[in-house]
Structure formats: structure tokens, C-alpha cells
Design a protein around this nucleic acid. Structure first.
Length: 611
DNA sequence: ATAGGGTTAG
């Protein structure tokens, strides 16, 4: 079914299955000189055919097998069939005695070739290696651990760690960072940190691994602490460090720090690296400055697929769906072959701009490019349908997927049900979510609000009861604003910020002025429904967005753009409040939501109230 | 013949 070169070059490449080990032709074969030039399986097969004609094959020659395995495994995740073929070749070798063969094969799994089962396959290869009495080296451990990392297989990873310790390889300068990375990829930052703390702390790569681990685990503040620490130690950041730190800035929405890193990058003359520029585009876009993102993109000497994809998503995130699509068309015109990530970007752009039919067409066209759609693509299509109000169709779409849907998929649909006020569909969906994951506070909140807004009081009470029975808690709303290189965080209602009293007073003042132009608090999205109307109004008044916006108004010069980052989706009341603030106080407000950006200016928002 | 760290639906 695949059209890989494998089908074109079947069995002749396989060494004969014999009980006797093949004779070791270590005699010189002049054809071996051509091996390095065989950069495809097809070429290798041709060489083999020539060898057969000349009398005597090549397939038993170690150099030939190595080349074959390398070619197959370096395709990694893109061509699982190649990897399977390499494995087949390998399994037919009676007594593989060369570490390189094992390492090469393990590398294929390390690159994600085995998918979710990659770690187990890698472990099996390792066991075979032990049985054959072949001694593993550091590359063996690196690849084995990477295989566990890319398969997110924590259990196998821990076992591999144990084996590495026994072999005395765990502290090796290449193995140790890989261990940190493995634990981070498997979601265990604490284990990663334990590994990190056990090291001398003079190694840039370990710092890089730990910084990345922190960013991956949504601990960007921790990443920045590590970054300062390594600078204090005199360790020189590499491009990888800077890329990770930029990613931390992106998470925090720390534009000023991001600009500082950008200057540093220029000073270090790292600004010609494509990946560094891609990280810069991502940082600027996620910190709310689409202009700067475009600037970096335009100044790039060359751009790869990732750069295009990141720019496309940046446009989409800021509400420029059409521009995002034209980026996609442009990159195709320039001869770039879109991949799974590129399509994720296009679908994302379509769903956020209400381009339903285009989105569905792009989704269908994935097959023409030989891309298998994954759960994330399905997520985009679900969003595309659901957001535009085709709830029933979205439900069917999820229900009939060729793979088991995740709670996230249903969650997407649930949000849309809330947006369209369809409590019946919402209920069906809510039940589907509970079957898969009943620990997510947001689901209860959304559904209970939907019930409240449609007058389904008994159901609402049931949901709330269920929620407290299960001990599920609501994630508190948190908004941050960066002023003079300091990130200020505000939580809904609480007074934890040193300036929160000040911010509260400012909110009171702002609200009074907004009331003059017709602002009426809209309490329909206040979760604590057992509150009285007055209490509800108070809770709403001190939503984290309002605190952050007011604090920003108070502490910046008139006319300064306010950049806010929120950890949840913005509530309708805060959204209309921000629109009014932009008009009354003549400020641009750029608010980053869990999902997208809202640019408020002159009383309107760039999302067109579609979010 | 091989190696460690980097962007991605909601």
C-alpha cells in the first residue's frame, strides 16, 4: 500500500536466511567504493543488482548492511515502512556482532520511527544485543533513551536509565542530557531536575536540556532562572539556549525580554540561523507584535517549511485568516512540500476565520500529499465545524473517526455548544467527555454555565455536585502584563499581587467611567452561581483581565499599548470591557487568550467577536 | 557507520 522504494526493491536485498553464519567476505570488493554515493534505497538496490551480475552479492558484507540500515533508519518518522524493512533485514542476520548495526537501528526508533511502540521495539533490539554479547556504547544509550523520549514511554525510559547506570554510562556527557530530555518528554520534570542537579553544572547542553524541559512543562519562569544562572556561571549560551529562552518569552508574553534576546542574538551574530529566526517570529507573534514577526520573516535570507508554518500560524492567531492562506499558497508556489504541521496551520487558520468550505477542502487535499491526518488535524476540523455552528455534523465527525477520539476533541465541541447556546448537544458531549476524562475543571465550568444560561437549574446543580464529589477544581483565571521588564501576574479576585489593592481601586474608577458610556456588567458567565447578584458583580469586577488592564492603565504613559496574557479564554464581559477601554482611554489593547489574540482599538476587536 | 539540546489543534 505504500509507494516507498521498498515495494520496488523487495527481497533481493535481504540476506539469505541460513542457519550458518554467512562467510565473512572481508575481501575487497571494488563495488564498495560506490556505497557512499548510494543516497537512496533505489540506488543501493541498483548497486546490488550490479554486484549480483558480477557474480557474488554484497548483502552479507557488513559495510553494505550498515549502509542499508542507515538509509532506512534516517528517514525516521517520515517513513515507518523503511524502518520496519531495516528491522526485517536486521532480524535475518544470524548473529549480528557489530555495535553500529544495533545503534543504527536504535537511531531509527529514536527519531520517532516506531511511533508509540518505538520504545518497546528499541528495548527488544537492546535485549538482543545483550544476548549476542555485544557491548553497548554511549551512542547505544543515547539512542535507546531517545527512543523512549519520542515514544513518551516513561516506564521504558526508567528501565533504560537503570541499565545505563549499571553500565556506568549515565553520567556520560552525552548520555546525561539525553536522560534529562527523556524525563522531560515523558512529562516528569522533577526526575529531569534530579538528573540535572546531580551534574557538575558546567555543561551548556545540560542547561539547554533543563531549560527546554522547563519550557515544555509550562514553567517558563523556571527556564529564565536557569538562563540567568548559566550566564552567571559564565557559560556561553548557544543558539539552542536562545531558541528555548525565546520560547519561554513566548509563553510568558514577555516582549521586552524577547527584544533583549533579539539584540543579544544580533550581537552574537546568530541572526542568520533559520531556526533562531523562526523562534523569533514565534516569540514576537505570541507576544502580540505581529509587525515584528513579519519584519523578521521578511529579513530572512532563506526560509524553511517551519519558518513558513510559524508565520502562517502567526497570521491566523492574530485574526488574518486570508493572509495565512496566501502564505500557504505562496510557499507551495515556491516549491515547498507542505507537511503535517503545515496543514495544521492552514486548518487552524480556516477554523479561526470561519472559512469552513476552504478548510474542508484543504483537509481533503492532505491525502494528495500522502499525509496521514492525526488527532490534531481532526481537532482543527472539529473546531472548524463546531465553531461555525454545525454542531451535529461535528458530533458525527468525532464519533466516526478512524481513531479513538480524545477528551480534547469533545472539549472543543463543548466550547462551541456553549458559544451557540445548545444545551442539549452540550449535555450529550459533556457525557462523552466524562467517559474519557472527568478531572478537567473547565468542562464542568463550561457546561454548568451553559445550563445556567439556558435556565436548566437542576442540571446545573447536578454538575456542580458532581464536580465537588470528584474533588475537581476550577483553574483560577490569571492574567499577566509586562511593564518595564517586570511581569505582573493577577489572579481573579485575590489580593496576592503587591499592587492588587491599587489595581482594584483603578478597576473601580475605570468601571465608573465606562458606565457613563453605557457599560453594563454581564454576569452570565460568573461561575459561582450560588452567589447573590451583588457578589456576582464583585467577582466579575475583579476578573484577572480587568485587574491587569487597569494596572496597565495606571502604570504606563498615556497612549502606550497594553499587552496582556491570559491563561484561559477571555470572558464576554471582559471582552466588552476591553473594547470600551480602548475607546474611552484611547489605548490599543493586545490580549492573548488561551486560543488566540484580541486586538482592541477604537472600541472594536480584531476577532470580530468570533472566538 | 553512529551522537546530546530546539516550533505544532483545544
Amino acid at each position: 500500500m505504500s509507494s516507498s522504494p521498498l515495494t520496488a526493491t523487495p527481497s533481493p536485498l535481504l540476506p539469505a536466511k541460513s542457519k550458518n553464519p554467512p562467510p565473512h567476505h572481508h575481501h575487497h570488493n571494488p563495488l564498495l567504493a560506490y556505497l557512499p554515493h548510494c543516497t537512496s534505497l533505489r540506488a543501493l538496490a541498483q548497486l546490488h543488482a550490479v554486484a549480483v551480475k558480477a557474480g557474488g552479492g554484497l548483502q552479507a558484507h557488513p559495510a553494505f548492511v550498515t549502509r542499508l540500515l542507515t538509509l532506512c533508519t534516517e528517514q525516521g518518522a517520515e517513513a515507518p515502512a523503511h524502518l520496519a524493512y531495516a528491522r526485517q533485514v536486521f532480524d535475518r542476520i544470524p548473529h549480528p556482532g557489530d555495535v553500529v548495526w544495533y545503534n543504527t537501528l536504535l537511531r531509527g526508533y529514536a527519531r520517532g520511527g516506531g511511533g508509540g511502540g518505538g520504545a518497546e521495539e528499541a528495548a527488544r533490539v537492546f535485549v538482543r544485543m545483550m544476548e549476542e554479547g555485544v557491548a553497548p556504547d554511549t551512542y547505544t544509550f543515547v539512542s535507546l533513551l531517545k527512543a523512549c523520549a519520542s515514544a513518551r514511554a516513561g516506564e521504558e525510559g526508567r528501565q533504560a536509565h537503570g541499565v545505563a547506570v549499571k553500565a556506568g554510562a549515565a553520567e556520560h556527557e552525552y548520555v546525561a542530557p539525553t536522560l534529562i530530555n527523556m524525563y522531560a518528554e515523558c512529562g516528569d520534570v522533577r526526575a529531569a531536575r534530579v538528573m540535572f542537579d546531580r551534574m557538575d553544572g558546567e555543561c551548556v547542553v545540560s542547561y539547554n536540556a533543563m531549560i527546554t524541559a522547563s519550557v515544555r512543562s509550562s514553567l517558563p519562569g523556571e527556564a529564565l532562572v536557569l538562563f540567568r544562572e548559566m550566564q552567571a556561571k559564565g557559560l556561553k549560551p548557544t543558539s539552542v539556549t536562545l531558541i528555548s529562552v525565546l520560547s519561554a518569552c513566548a509563553l510568558l508574553g514577555a516582549l521586552e525580554l524577547g527584544r533583549w534576546i533579539h539584540d543579544y542574538i544580533r550581537k552574537m551574530r546568530l541572526d542568520s540561523l533559520v531556526k533562531v529566526n523562526t523562534a523569533l517570529i514565534d516569540m514576537y507573534a505570541k507576544c502580540g507584535s505581529l509587525e515584528d514577526a513579519i519584519g523578521v520573516f521578511q529579513d530572512m535570507e532563506s526560509r524553511d517549511k517551519q519558518a513558513w508554518s510559524v508565520m502562517m500560524v502567526a497570521y491566523a492567531n492574530h485574526g488574518y485568516g486570508r493572509e495565512a492562506i496566501s502564505m500557504f499558497e505562496e510557499m507551495k508556489k515556491q516549491g515547498m512540500k507542505p507537511d503535517d504541521v503545515t496543514f495544521l496551520g492552514v486548518l487552524y487558520a480556516c477554523s479561526h476565520s470561519g472559512m469552513v468550505s476552504e478548510g474542508l477542502q484543504y483537509f481533503d487535499s492532505m491525502r494528495e500529499y500522502g499525509i496521514v491526518s492525526g488527532i490534531k488535524h481532526y481537532g482543527c476540523v472539529t473546531d472548524l465545524l463546531a465553531r461555525s455552528g454545525q454542531l451535529e455534523r461535528a458530533y458525527k465527525f468525532i464519533d466516526e473517526l478512524p481513531i479513538k477520539p480524545t477528551a480534547i476533541l469533545w472539549r472543543t465541541l463543548l466550547s462551541a455548544c456553549a458559544g451557540h447556546g445548545d444545551v442539549d448537544m452540550g449535555k450529550r458531549v459533556f457525557e462523552r467527555i466524562l467517559e474519557l476524562d472527568d478531572s478537567h475543571g473547565g468542562d464542568y465550568v463550561i457546561f454548568s454555565n451553559l445550563c445556567a444560561n439556558t435556565g436548566r437549574w437542576e442540571e446545573m446543580n447536578m454538575v456542580r455536585k458532581l464536580m465537588s464529589e470528584k474533588g475537581v477544581v476550577k483553574v483560577p483565571g490569571c492574567s499577566s502584563i509586562e511593564i518595564d521588564n517586570m511581569v505582573h501576574e493577577f489572579f481573579a479576585g485575590d489580593g496576592s499581587h503587591p499592587h492588587s489593592q491599587e489595581a482594584r481601586r483603578m478597576v473601580d474608577e475605570v468601571i465608573e467611567q465606562l458606565k457613563l458610556v453605557g457599560y453594563v456588567p454581564n454576569t452570565s458567565h460568573v461561575f459561582h452561581v450560588e452567589m447573590g447578584e451583588e457578589e456576582k458583580a464583585t467577582s466579575l469586577r475583579y476578573h484577572s483581565e480587568k485587574l491587569a488592564i487597569s494596572f496597565g492603565l495606571l502604570n504606563t504613559a498615556p497612549g502606550t499599548t497594553l499587552r496582556i496574557v491570559k491563561n484561559l479564554r477571555v470572558c464576554p464581559d471582559c471582552h466588552s470591557m476591553a473594547k470600551l477601554v480602548s475607546m474611552v482611554f484611547n489605548r490599543r489593547i493586545i490580549l492573548r487568550d488561551l486560543n488566540r489574540f484580541h486586538h482592541f482599538e477604537d472600541g472594536v476587536c480584531s476577532c470580530g467577536d468570533y472566538w
